[in-house]
Design a binder for these strands. Structure first.
Lengths: 188, 188
DNA sequence: CTTATTTTTGACCGTATGGTCAATTATTCA
DNA sequence: TGAATAATTGACCATACGGTCAAAAATAAG
């Protein structure tokens, strides 16, 4: 009946996502996208409608990828320990200059009210919810305030991911994490 | 002998600086610059050579402005208290979406090696030196490690300035500061 | 093999970018 | 009042941007 699509849509989204992740939304050009995906402009627009729409799909994919790293149950101390260990290890790799796509976008779209801006802020909320769940698990059967932990965990995560973009100093990044984890008697 | 310049060079640099501060280097167009300064392209290039060169002058100005906020002597506890109080108060203002030009630029130029990138990284070092001086003053005649304070103060400053670009939550921002200041028995 | 349907292609569009430059205008000194 | 000098002006440039679209190519069903 008709010609079949030659590429895997999801594969294209992932490749585009990585580009947006490194270069930001405005910093990524159509040329970048055609080069990294191997598609030509026409196909790109035929399939994804616009650069903005493709970016929204990338944000969605990034969000659902991230969910697999979110806390569900089990030992919350163990979770945060592994979480920050991974963040620091990833951060010091010199090829890793991405940061976190959600946080990068929050900064890029701080003064904007476009669809990507809204999506971005919604995704940040899900990150906050993740840390809220962890924080609550951490203070279970104690009278401590979970909000205190929530704030310090989010802040540490934000700082490590963003600062590691330009400061590849393992000791420094570990200190950020350990500072946030000290009250929990955890060290990485 | 010759026609005289009609504008104040320093005034132009300040206006340009504010634009770069809000929109970033790439995000600022020549149109933005001519509009905010009132100069036309020709004059701008005649006086400042290029967009990049003008940006370097803006970074320099921002750096020397910042120096007036750096710690010199006196009570270091009082200094950090006022410092973070100001950061939070500025951060929650909804018209303030600038963050810190140095830190913004560190993020924007993370993967770059241009003149602005280098200048930016050099300025970040001066910020680190400021906090090193404070940290040393804070641990004077004690056996504590100043590096611990240095890291947590820089991180808190970075987080408050950058997160406040998109999250105008005073309680949250204060918590970041108080977390860093707790060991000093300071609260804002 | 033909036909219907859909993807793929790349030339093309309007706009915006950073940057240049010859002509014009203003100023100061002699 | 000139002449010399320098600032100002805006038309102009090549390039790059996101986006469009008619034509070509490929496929599946009959």
């Amino acid at each position: 009946m008709s010609r079949t699509v030659e590429f895997d849509k999801d594969d294209i989204i992932e490749k585009a996502m990585n580009t947006f992740w490194t270069k930001g939304y405005e910093g990524t050009t159509l040329k970048d996208l055609t080069e990294v995906t191997g598609l030509l402009k026409g196909s790109l627009y035929n399939t994804f409608k616009s650069k903005e729409n493709l970016f929204l799909l990338c944000l969605e994919k990034y969000g659902s990828n991230s969910k697999t790293l979110f806390y569900v149950d089990g030992d919350p101390k163990e979770y945060v320990k592994n979480f920050f260990k991974r963040l620091v290890d990833e951060g010091v790799k010199k090829e890793n200059i991405n940061g976190c796509l959600i946080m990068n976008s929050c900064l890029e779209f701080a003064d904007s009210d476009t669809a990507p801006a809204k999506k971005t802020k919604a995704l940040f909320k899900t990150v906050e919810l993740n840390f809220e769940r962890v924080a609550k698990a951490l203070v279970q059967d104690s009278d401590e305030d979970p909000q205190k932990y929530q704030t310090s965990l989010i802040t540490a995560a934000f700082s490590i991911r963003e600062i590691s973009k330009f400061k590849k100093d393992k000791k420094f990044l570990k200190q950020i994490a350990n500072n946030a984890l000290r009250d929990l008697n955890i060290m990485i």
